[in-house]
């Protein structure tokens, strides 16, 4: 099974243990696989280890005084375990971080240019044009300072900046945080358009399980640093555990 999966997997996390200096193990034997073009949800409550897993994949754990103790992370077959975060981005990992983290003092256009700086100029130009097609709002504001835009627009920009680097896979961390539901829906709808246009795979980390399960093909559930469930989005949504813990009573409406 693993041989076939490796050949096709765009992201493969295998047996990852991670820890922070002061605390006990934050991730324990976590494995997950994202096939080319796949959209995978990572669910879990606050403190379950979702953000730690994201940082373990993106190479940012050391910056937050954490360590990847053992296990491996591969992008399209290339072992990226222990590489510097900026090198991992160059290998095809696009990041839409929690809290958006746009460059506040740069214009929309400049933010996208920074994203496109890791790919050849022609590819970057094409990508930026495609981002403007997906998010006409950004095209309207291309000369505006990013810090002066609304939260929803900044989230579009963070997504656009990651797309401008022509990634094989996007890590999307808590996109809905602090945004109005209607805006979140609109941005999520664009994620599907992104996949259709570029075939980009995505790992979607969400506290709002209902939303994530609606748009993703498969889902993993993380609790206290351990993957406790995985399967197709429909299976996960139908399980009692998920309905009770994450979807609330309205979960039945899925």
């Amino acid at each position: 099974m693993s041989g076939v999966a490796s050949a096709e997997a765009v992201l493969e996390v295998q047996g990852v243990f991670a820890a922070y200096a002061a605390k006990a193990t934050a991730l324990s034997d976590v494995s997950l696989t994202i096939p080319a073009g796949g959209m995978v949800a990572l669910l879990g409550s606050n403190g379950a280890g979702k953000t730690t897993l994201i940082k373990a994949i993106s190479g940012l754990l050391p910056l937050h005084h954490g360590t990847l103790v053992s296990g491996s992370v591969r992008i399209a077959g290339t072992n990226i375990t222990g590489l510097r975060a900026d090198r991992i981005v160059r290998l095809g990992l696009g990041q839409v971080p929690e809290g958006r983290l746009v460059f506040k003092h740069l214009t929309v256009e400049e933010n996208l240019q920074v994203g496109a700086a890791v790919v050849p100029r022609a590819v970057g130009r094409e990508r930026i044009a495609a981002v403007y097609d997906l998010f006409p709002r950004l095209a309207e504001r291309r000369r505006q300072q990013a810090g002066l835009m609304s939260g929803g627009e900044q989230q579009m920009l963070a997504l656009g900046r990651a797309l401008a680097s022509a990634p094989r896979i996007l890590l999307i961390d808590e996109l809905s945080l602090g945004l109005a539901p209607i805006i979140v829906k609109a941005i999520y709808a664009q994620l599907r358009a992104v996949r259709a246009a570029f075939g980009t795979a995505m790992l979607v980390v969400e506290q709002n399980a209902k939303l994530a399960l609606e748009i993703c093909d498969t889902a993993y559930v993380l609790e206290r640093g351990v993957i406790v469930m995985s399967g197709s989005a429909a299976e996960v949504a139908a399980s009692d555990r998920i309905r009770e813990s994450y979807l609330g009573s309205s979960g039945g409406a899925l």
Partner: peptide, 24 residues
Amino acid sequence: SKAGLLMRATADSHEAAVLSGVNV
């Protein structure tokens, strides 16, 4: 210049620059 842009980006947010693939 491109290097100037990346310098302004790094000045703006170190972490966002790293996450965008900038060799800080």
